[in-house]
Write a protein that binds this DNA or RNA. Structure first.
Lengths: 165, 165
DNA sequence: CTATTCTCCACTAACTCAGTTGAGAAAGTG
DNA sequence: CACTTTCTCAACTGAGTTAGTGGAGAATAG
C-alpha cells in the first residue's frame, strides 16, 4: 500500500517525475553500497520509501538503458553496471522519462516560428542547453559524496535560488 | 477546427506546453504591433495558427496576471499592459502554467532526502536556478527584436546545443 | 438598436502519471 | 529433485492534466 504523498495541485514547466526521483534515490543507494553483493529491490524500496513494484518497473528501465545490472534468485538483486562517476543525472532522467526537453510535444530543434515569434526557438534551445549544463555535469558519485561540480555550487550559492518566486 | 499537430508520443522533463507556446506567440505579436489600437483575438489566432477559443482562455489568464489588457466591443481587442521590455518569459510561463519547477509535485525547496540521497535537493535547486537564469533574463522585447541576452547567445553558440542527444 | 468583441462557465476526449496485480522465469539451497 | 527467493514482463487502473470546444452574456462603438 502506498502512502500517496503528492497533492500535485499545480502543473509546471520542469517537472521532475516520481520515476526520475525514485530512480536517482535507488541508484544513489547502489552507488554507496560496499558489500560487493547485489542489493535487493526490497531493500532499496524500504530504505527510501518507494513502492516496491513501481521501483521494479523503474529498475527494469534502468537495466535496459545499461545503467544497472541485475540477477534473479536468492542471492539476486541489483547493482550499478557502470562506475558511479560515469552515470550522469541526464542519463538517468533520459532512461526513465525520455528526452530532457519538449515544446508542445516536439523536440526544440524541430519547432518553427513565423513572424514576430521567429526567435522563440533559440530561447527553447537555450533552455534545454542550460538544463543540460547542469544534468550532464553531475554524476551519481558527485551526489553520493556531496562534492557537487562547480556549476551546481555556483547556481545554489545565491540564497535567492532557494526561495519560490 | 484544430489541426491537431501534436503526436505527444513521449513524456519529458522540460515540457513547454501548448499554452505557454501560444501565449508567447500572441504576446510577441502584441509587442511588435504599432497601430496603437487594440489587436483582435481573431487576428492573433489566425496569424499564428492558434485555435481562437483556446487562445481566448490563455489571454484571460494573461490579463489576470497583469500582462495584457483588453477591451470589448467593435473597437476592442488586446494590448500589452506593460512595456515589452518589462515582461520576461518566466512571467508568461508562470501566468499560464504555474511555478517553473516541481519535483514529484513539490516545490524543490520543500523536498527532503535521507541517507545517500541527501544532496539531491541541491541539484534540483540548481536545475531551477539554471532555468530561471534563462527565462527571467529574456523579455518580449528581446525575442521580438532578435537581440537576445548574452546568456542565450552563449548557450546557443555551441552547435551541440542544437542537436538531440 | 445592432454588430462586434471580449468574458465566464461548463464540458469533453485523449492522454499521462503513479502506481497495482499477477503469472512466470532464473538462481541458489537442501 | 523440490522449494524458496528474487527479478521479469505484460496488462490493467484511477486520478488528474492537457488541449481544446460551446454557448450564453456583458461591454463597447457606431
Amino acid at each position: 500500500m502506498s502512502v500517496g504523498v503528492s497533492p500535485v495541485g499545480h502543473n509546471c514547466r520542469v517537472n521532475i517525475s516520481a520515476k526520475a526521483d525514485y530512480a536517482m534515490r535507488a541508484l544513489l543507494l547502489l552507488a554507496v553500497d560496499e558489500t560487493g553483493k547485489p542489493v535487493k529491490g526490497q531493500h532499496l524500496a524500504t530504505t527510501q520509501g518507494i513502492p516496491l513494484k513501481f521501483l521494479e518497473n523503474i529498475l527494469t528501465e534502468l537495466r535496459n538503458a545499461g545503467i544497472v545490472a541485475s540477477q534473479r534468485g536468492a542471492e539476486g538483486g541489483y547493482w550499478l553496471a557502470r562506475k558511479p562517476s560515469e552515470v550522469t543525472m541526464a542519463d538517468v532522467i533520459r532512461a526513465v522519462d525520455g528526452p530532457l526537453a519538449h515544446v508542445r510535444g516536439l523536440r526544440p530543434e524541430t519547432t518553427t516560428y513565423e513572424g514576430a515569434a521567429e526567435h522563440l526557438q533559440q530561447v527553447w534551445i537555450a533552455v534545454r542547453a542550460s538544463l543540460r549544463s547542469v544534468l550532464e555535469k553531475v554524476t551519481l558519485a558527485d551526489v553520493a559524496s556531496g562534492k557537487l561540480p562547480r556549476v551546481i555550487e555556483r547556481l545554489t550559492a545565491d540564497p535567492d535560488a532557494w526561495v519560490a518566486h
